[in-house]
Amino acid sequence: MDLTNSTPPAVSSAPLTLALIVASDREGRFGPVVADWFRTRLAEREDFTVTVVDLAEVDLPTSLSHDPSPAVRAELAKVSPVLADADAFVVLTPEYNHSFPASLKNLIDRHYTEWQAKPVGFVSYGGVSGGLRAVEQLRQVFAEMHSVTVRDTVSFHNAHGRFDQDGRLQDPAAAEGAAKVLLDQLGWWGRALKDAKSVRPYGS
């Protein structure tokens, strides 16, 4: 077969649509401080456009139903289209009792195709573990959703002591370097999977 005149498929150069999921809905949460820092890192990038899904602003009951009430449908309307339109995700999560928040599991369980064949990155925070135990559990959950989790993460050990009273990160070099690696990997996977799905739709 002569391949000399074959034309490679078109590759899009448009920015990837990224959904940043702020997982904690706990009163007095530290998540917005970390989220503001990470959004600053995202603002430096031209390869992503960002939409924030803050689970403290979404009121979803933990009881699941195939026929949700109008009130639940209204809440889902705030998040489901954002997840469906996203090319990639970053989950920003604390660690609660060696795991991740119930609000995040609820969001994940209420969706399926929205997660499929898309990359997921993690920014975590907590005490000594920096939220990494929550991330390891989330990797298993997202594998069940047919998502691809990127290897490198950003984690903040003893997070409250890492930021000053104005929310500025002290000694930011290592975290900024980790954020760049995470977003570079997320961009590669996001582009690769988006281009692949344009040629052959994903089917689980």
Rank of each mutant, 00 (worst) to 15 (best):
R45W: 05
A134R: 10
S6M: 14
T113W: 01
G130T: 09
L182V: 09
D2N: 11
A77K: 00
G190H: 10
W189R: 06
A174L: 10
E46T: 14
P32W: 05
V154Y: 12
S99I: 00
R151N: 13
Q185P: 06
S13R: 13
A74M: 09
K194Q: 08
V120M: 04
L92P: 12
T51G: 06
H157S: 14
A178C: 04
L83W: 01
D195C: 11
N158R: 12
L193V: 03
A88C: 10
L193G: 06
D36E: 08
H98S: 13
S198V: 01
V22F: 08
L183S: 05
S24N: 11
V141W: 04
S80A: 03
T149K: 07
S204R: 02
V90Y: 01
L186V: 01
A179D: 02
D171P: 04
R41K: 12
M1W: 06
T93L: 00
E46Q: 12
K78G: 00
R26H: 13
G127P: 03
F100E: 05
P119I: 02
P172Y: 11
P70W: 07
Q116H: 15
F163P: 04
R200E: 14
L76F: 01
N5G: 09
R162S: 08
E44L: 14
L193W: 10
W188I: 10
V148S: 11
D59T: 07
E176P: 08
A14V: 06
E46N: 11
P15L: 05
P15Q: 06
K180E: 03
D25Y: 14
N5A: 12
F38V: 08
A134D: 11
Q116K: 08
G177P: 03
P70I: 00
S13G: 13
V120F: 03
K105F: 04
L42N: 08
K180D: 14
P8D: 01
L16H: 12
V120D: 04
G203R: 12
Q140N: 14
N106V: 03
